[in-house]
Amino acid sequence: MTISEPDQRWADLGRQACVVLAPLFLAIEHVGSTAVPGLPAKPVIDLMASVPDLDEISDSTLETFGYRRVPTDMPERLFFRREDYDSTAYHLHVVAAAGWETRNERLLRDHLLAHPADRDRYAALKRELMAEFGPGPAYTRGKTALIQELTDAARAARGLPSVPVWEE
């Protein structure tokens, strides 16, 4: 999957998905590149939701909305995926409420929304890496240093310490 130029529909799709799923969670938000107007992205609507306890998640309930659990190595997170008829994918990241306020994904999104110059730097890097490497691990690794820098800035602005952007 390659990156696409910004699409105005992404914000609406993210908002609609959050409205539909909101009754299932304490909080749910559209995060990731498609949540930032003007940012090129893979056509994937990333959603992050919080629950009191990850053990309370019902796979069968989420399946009624088209979301299927996908095993990952990400600790303290459940990951669900939904494919839409128009080739838009939805990724649902479910995390415990205890760390909701300081989730890197939320902080980075908010930073990019508030700092257009950083958004543009990130957009240029994404285009460059996609042209050089195509989709895959090299593309993802190539973004890491800038994502860490921007996330660190967002965390520092809130008086939070740096933490790695990739969970291991």
Rank of each mutant, 00 (worst) to 15 (best):
D152H: 06
F133P: 05
P23T: 00
A124P: 04
P52C: 00
H115Q: 13
R127H: 08
A114V: 02
L62V: 07
I45L: 05
A138P: 04
L13S: 02
V19W: 03
V19H: 11
D59P: 00
H111F: 04
L112G: 13
A49W: 09
W10H: 08
V70D: 03
G134T: 09
R127M: 07
V94R: 01
R69S: 05
T34Q: 12
A124I: 11
S4Q: 14
A11K: 07
Y90H: 04
Q8D: 15
A22H: 09
G38F: 15
A41S: 11
D73C: 03
E168C: 04
V31M: 05
T140K: 02
V95P: 04
H30Q: 09
S58N: 07
G38V: 13
P6V: 02
R127C: 07
Y85D: 14
P161N: 07
L24S: 11
L129I: 00
D84L: 13
D55G: 14
L129E: 02
I3W: 00
S87Q: 11
Y85R: 11
T2H: 15
M74N: 12
S33A: 14
E101K: 15
A138C: 09
E128V: 02
G99K: 06
T88V: 15
T151G: 06
P52W: 00
L129C: 03
D55A: 15
R158W: 00
S50Y: 05
A49I: 07
G136N: 14
H30I: 09
S50F: 06
A97G: 02
V94L: 10
A98T: 13
V31L: 05
G99H: 11
P75T: 09
M130L: 12
P137S: 03
R119Q: 06
L125N: 08
I57Q: 06
T102D: 14
A49V: 06
R158P: 01
P137E: 13
